[in-house]
Design a protein around this nucleic acid. Sequence first.
DNA 1: ACAAAAGTGTTCCTGTTACACCCATGT
DNA 2: ACATGGGTGTAACAGGAACACTTTTGT
Lengths: 205, 205
Amino acid sequence: MNDTKPSAPIVAAVALFTIRDKLEFLRLEGEQGRIPSLPVEEDETLEACARRALWEAAGIEEVFLEQLYTFDGGPGGPRVIVAYYALAPHDRLHIRRAGVSWADPTPAPIVVEEHRVIVERACERLAGKLEYAPIAYQFLADRFTLGELQTVYEIIGRQALDKRNFRRRIRASWDLVETHDARREGPHRPARLYRLRDARPPLEG
Amino acid sequence: MNDTKPSAPIVAAVALFTIRDKLEFLRLEGEQGRIPSLPVEEDETLEACARRALWEAAGIEEVFLEQLYTFDGGPGGPRVIVAYYALAPHDRLHIRRAGVSWADPTPAPIVVEEHRVIVERACERLAGKLEYAPIAYQFLADRFTLGELQTVYEIIGRQALDKRNFRRRIRASWDLVETHDARREGPHRPARLYRLRDARPPLEG
DNA sequence: ACAAAAGTGTTCCTGTTACACCCATGT
DNA sequence: ACATGGGTGTAACAGGAACACTTTTGT
């Protein structure tokens, strides 16, 4: 994975997020810190290139991936950077290279300027889309508990939520299917598992 | 203005909208119909290129301009198309070339496929951002009447609105300044002129 | 027994909708 | 005088926020 060959005109960059305990993004360690990015090949779509960058860095396919913004490249760098963000549950990710790690996006850590902007902007987009797009579910397995879901909302939205209001609201705006089994894990009542049946049509792309 | 030199790798394209009576976009007539677009020059930003395309087609500067999406170019066309949308009151526009005209975006008129997608998507974005970003004001002069503003909302949102509710809502969500003069035009009571003081902070870019 | 998360309803408040009449002007 | 758009308030309704206790389990 090499970013920014000086000759590469178009580069796709991806901020990959996951939730373990807090929101984290995939950071390539080096002198400065970067996010996965690759020059777009001759007969490759932008999205395919972004997925390739993701595959090479984290060994993951079939993630939720969405375009974020296109930036002008700096002098001596690529001509433009087409930025994407990706979301995945952390247990589907398999880091396959040294020098790749998870970092907290909010104190804006040591990452080259152009990539820091991408990470920050992706965080904002995430919080903004939380209510009307099926963002939160991308961090969870196919079946999940309402407790897990609430935690995701709280982490991305950065605020604690009332359990009863959350459940009412979520069941009103998404089509959740109550499965018939539950997850038992810990000294407390087992939690029912749900699946998301259908995303309500979002307003814009 | 030449679009799609086969060798041009990166092209900026702009869907320029205005409101006369309905929502219209700037269309370059030709065999097929296009929107303004230009290859990005060596040391030019994407946005600057978009503005240049706008200037050459409609003789307008200092418009509201926002990035929309970046598309893969087709085979034989540009490598990528960075799409923008622009908004302006129609009296600030000065068409300076033959073969440039206004067209209705909603019946999806005769425009090359890649550009049609841009126009459609821009319309959706417009409707989506209407409530939380100062979109509507970009179609009006500095000072405007609430009637004019309501008309803009109705056109972009594609639905009639109640006058009293509209006024209450708009005054609650935007900081409108009531100027001390009015506009008299027609056989009816003159309408008070307002200005927009400050945009409320929107949630995302 | 107890600690720990799951699960469940009601009240209040706020913001949205529906709705009808008088005002100021030009012709 | 009349036609035209400008301007205003109130009552019903719906969606969001605040709030506390019982249930089921593992140790």
